[in-house]
Design a protein around this nucleic acid. Structure first.
Lengths: 209, 209
DNA sequence: TCGAAACGATAATATAGGTTATCGTATTGT
DNA sequence: ACAATACGATAACCTATATTATCGTTTCGA
């Protein structure tokens, strides 16, 4: 049987054991980190023996890399579906809504766990960092850029400028709140996030009259 | 001889061995993280034997906690000195200058290493996170607040409002740049940081006419 | 100078966890 | 049903590293 390191980009779930291992490993790595998660613990959580775990995954490192890559891919895919529903209504409402959701997701356990574990392991897995950044921050910016490109208000804006505006929009929404949540402290309130999104939206729209 | 866990707040450097251990431990922990740094490695780097290391530090955990606390204290102290020189000239210039320095220090190796290691170890050392946040972000905000309190432009501003404005000022300067640097990616350019500081300064000053 | 305290070298202890080997059983596809 | 493959249980191996014990030597203050 082929191992995950052989078919790198897409991890196929051939059997239910494979899926169980994938789930358990993802849970363990995101929850406990690379060093904190043990192969034995992952095997137990998946309901398989250690040997079965090793028959599917070459070693801990490749398993970890496959899991993180998989989480990034999955994150990008499901974002696309959400965005279609989010991008309806008046332009400013869309921006504010997107800004709030962006902040909530960023402070949520999924992305935060991902950021923490990848930040911790930049030495061991230098290439994963950019993948995670792309999967969240670049993805949001790119999606908003594609949306704005179809709006009349942005007909006269150069693509490069439009891209910069999108990046600045989301960059403005990070703030010390992201640091606070990364440090395990309580994040901003819903009201604060809404207000921040409003200001960022107004700032963006001010650029196009 | 007393150990560091006995006199918690201030770690006195009684002997040159103590200082060497403190330096080596700080270097190792910030560079390699808590798990990545070994007691043997610290002892070697300090030029002492492992036994001497253990005679000064009760265990690895207390050593780590003492080091991080010490770094936070030292960081706050030296910030005060820099600020006195920074806070001269026209108000807007001061704000822009402070904004740029804040961003540069934040993206610098000192603070970034500190953030990374504390983010990694929030489970084991839950109380250190807030100490680090206070030592950098709260300290900057508090210092700016104290400075603005003496300015005529802020005579009519309520202290609570002024405090919020300071927090918002620095929060605006974090952005995705901080995440990028935490992930080991290249940060913003000097020009981008200057421009961001300018906008944040204008936004702050707009609140007081 | 003298005795107490600090120091160094070394070894031993203890634990944790990644990885592999073996061998017998269960599952599965044809 | 049968052969190939997957699976499980167990043990063993190996490494790294925190921590302690011992004992002889050095340093330093009174």
């Amino acid at each position: 049987m082929r191992q995950w390191s052989d078919n790198h980009p897409k991890v196929k779930l051939l059997t239910r054991k494979r899926a169980a291992i994938l789930d358990a490993a993802q849970e363990a790595f995101l929850q406990l980190g690379y060093e904190g998660a043990s192969m034995e613990g992952i095997a137990n959580a998946a309901g398989v023996s250690i040997m079965t775990l090793y028959r599917h995954a070459k070693c801990k490192e490749t398993l970890f890399a496959a899991i993180i890559a998989n989480v990034c891919d999955h994150s990008s895919e499901e974002k696309q579906a959400e965005l279609d529903e989010m991008m309806r209504g008046p332009l400013k409402d869309v921006l504010v809504r997107a800004g709030v959701v962006f902040q909530e997701k960023l402070a949520g356990p999924q992305i935060m766990s991902l950021l923490r574990v990848v930040i911790t392991e930049i030495r061991r897995f230098p290439n994963l960092a950019e993948a995670v950044y792309d999967a969240y921050f670049v993805a949001w910016s790119t999606n908003l850029d594609g949306f704005l490109a179809q709006k009349d208000e942005f007909k006269g804006v150069a693509p490069k400028t439009r891209k910069k505006l999108c990046e600045a929009f989301f960059s403005r929404l990070v703030g010390t709140d992201a640091i606070r949540v990364l440090l395990g402290m309580k994040g901003a309130s819903a009201a604060e996030r809404l207000e921040r999104a409003r200001v960022a939206a107004e700032e963006l729209l001010a650029e196009v009259g």
